[in-house]
Structure formats: structure tokens, C-alpha cells
């Protein structure tokens, strides 16, 4: 078969095929026990925080020792259950969420190679670029799903344990509960978007190795390293380029008026990571010898 023939066979694939591939990929990912366990852990965090705050404040004292300690927004939870959403996201964003994303992203290519299914995937006339893109979209959708699981679980627990109603923004102005819910949704989207940098990094690491475990461990290791480096004051010149540096900017959505500067920086940085590591993953994956 000449090259031209192959090209002709590949070209007429309908664009719908990509969606079929994506649907396949999504069902495979979300049906895995590992994924479900990760999501269950994420759903458990708000339950733990909610119950802990409820018990601690049972005698009327304020949570966080009253001195403003603990995760962001924790002191407001007893007054409005909606704040549990923000606290839960602030508590899971530094570690639980990116770890879950790192596991799924690290597994994306290396896991297939490890299980020996990668070459069968490539036999399907999808092309490597398209397969990689599908994998990345799946990971990004997982970021969104994971964030929404935390938010919905927190909202449910918050509604069950604490009163709901109008809430006070951190600028001291009042907004209605409906607007508060809208802000919560925006915050969940901002948090999900904060993770697309880690997702791209994980996918790139995943193309480097044939061992799923190695890829996951490397991604989570990088995540921890970057977070530690972000705490070292001597590195302040580099810190604005760490993917985790602006993560807490989602809290700016609770200001009135919203302070967009850092949110925009965060989104720009995540897009940059997605572009750099996404294209690096493409360069690696499309040029790689698939042996497994």
C-alpha cells in the first residue's frame, strides 16, 4: 500500500467520529472504579468539613478559633451553608483536586501503554493527534466533573446542616441567595479552569513513559514540588509562572465588585500551560514508537 492510499483512507473520516471516540473515552474513564473512588473521596471532603464545623460550633463558638485561621471562608459557614461550597473548594484545590486530575491525566496515555491497549487504539483510523486531543478533552471534562462533585456535595451538606439565605460578600455588601448560587457556579468553573494546566502537564508526562504508575507519581510529585516552591519567598520572581500561583484567585469572585486582575492572570497562565505542554505532548506522542 502506498502512502497516498493510506492518506486517502484516513482523510474521509467524518468529524462525528471524534465525538464517538470522545464518548467512548468518557464512558471508559468514568466507569473505572479508580475514577469513582477519587470522586467519592472528593465528595467526602465537604461532608467532613461540614460535620467538623457543626460539632465545633455546637456550643456557639466561632470556627477557626475566631482568629481567622483555617481555610478561606470557614468562619462564615455557620451563618450561611453556601459558604461551605467556597470553603470546600478552597480546601480541596491545593491538593485533592489536582491530585485526582494528576492521576487521571497521568494514566491517559501511559495507562493504555501499560495495559497493552494503546496499539489497538491506534489501529482505529483516528490518528494519533485526534486520540491525544480526545484524551485531553476527557481529562478536562474530568476536572469539571470533579469540581462539580465537590461543589454539589458541599451545597447539599451546607443546606442540611446550616441555614441558607442572603449572604454577605467579603467586601461587606449583601447579595441575594440566587446571586450567591450564581457566584458559586462561577467559582466552580474558575476552579475547574485552574486545573487545566495540571491536566496538560499530566498528559505530557503520560506520553513520556509506558508505566501508568510512574506518570501519575511524577505528575503528583511535580504538583507538590511546585506548591512548596511557591512558598519560598526567595523565588518570588519565578512564582507568577507556577501553575498553582493564582489558584486562590477564585475567591476574588466573592468581592463586590469582582476583582478580575488575578482571575485573568490565572486563566492566561492555565492557557499557556495547556498550549506549551499540550503541544509538547503532541510532539512526543506523534513521533513516539509505540511498542506496547
Amino acid at each position: 500500500m502506498s502512502r497516498a492510499d493510506v492518506a486517502e483512507q484516513v482523510r474521509p473520516v467524518s468529524p462525528l467520529w471524534t465525538f464517538g471516540l470522545l464518548r467512548n473515552e468518557l464512558t471508559t474513564t468514568f466507569r473505572r472504579w479508580r475514577t469513582l473512588a477519587l470522586l467519592a473521596v472528593l465528595a467526602g471532603v465537604p461532608i467532613l468539613v461540614g460535620i467538623a464545623v457543626k460539632i465545633e460550633t455546637g456550643d456557639g463558638s466561632s470556627p477557626g478559633g475566631g482568629g481567622g485561621g483555617g481555610p478561606a471562608f470557614i468562619s462564615q459557614i455557620t451563618n450561611n451553608g453556601l459558604f461551605l461550597v467556597f470553603t470546600a473548594l478552597a480546601a480541596t484545590l491545593p491538593f485533592f483536586l489536582p491530585m485526582a486530575v494528576g492521576v487521571v491525566a497521568g494514566d491517559a496515555i501511559a495507562g493504555e501503554a501499560n495495559a497493552g491497549t494503546l496499539r489497538y487504539l491506534l489501529v482505529a483510523p483516528a490518528g494519533r493527534s485526534r486520540l491525544l486531543l480526545t484524551k485531553y478533552v476527557t481529562v478536562v471534562l474530568f476536572c469539571l466533573a470533579a469540581t462539580l462533585v465537590v461543589a454539589v456535595s458541599a451545597l447539599t451538606v451546607g443546606a442540611l446542616l446550616f441555614p441558607l439565605g442572603d449572604l454577605t460578600t467579603i467586601s461587606g455588601t449583601r447579595i441575594s441567595f440566587a446571586e450567591g448560587l450564581g457566584r458559586a457556579l462561577l467559582i466552580a468553573l474558575a476552579v475547574a479552569a485552574s486545573l487545566i494546566g495540571v491536566a496538560a502537564l499530566g498528559l505530557f508526562v503520560s506520553t513520556l513513559t509506558n508505566s501508568g504508575i510512574a506518570a501519575m507519581a511524577t505528575t503528583v510529585g511535580l504538583l507538590i514540588t511546585v506548591q512548596i516552591l511557591d512558598q519560598i519567598p526567595q523565588l518570588h520572581a519565578l512564582q507568577p509562572y507556577f501553575f498553582s500561583h493564582y489558584w486562590l484567585s477564585f475567591a476574588d469572585l466573592m468581592r463586590e465588585p469582582v476583582y478580575w486582575d488575578e482571575l485573568a492572570k490565572n486563566l492566561g497562565l492555565q492557557a499557556l500551560y495547556a498550549a506549551v505542554f499540550g503541544s509538547a505532548a503532541w510532539a512526543r506522542f506523534t513521533a513516539k514508537d509505540i511498542t506496547a
Partner: peptide, 15 residues
């Protein structure tokens, strides 16, 4: 995005 997408399925041995 991929200028070389068409030869994704070719093996290195052919070229």
C-alpha cells in the same frame, strides 16, 4: 493543528 496528521498512521520504516 497537525501538519503531519496524514502520516500519523505510517510507520517509520516506510520513509
Amino acid at each position: 493543528m497537525a501538519p503531519y496528521a496524514s502520516d500519523d498512521n505510517t510507520t517509520a520504516g516506510e520513509v
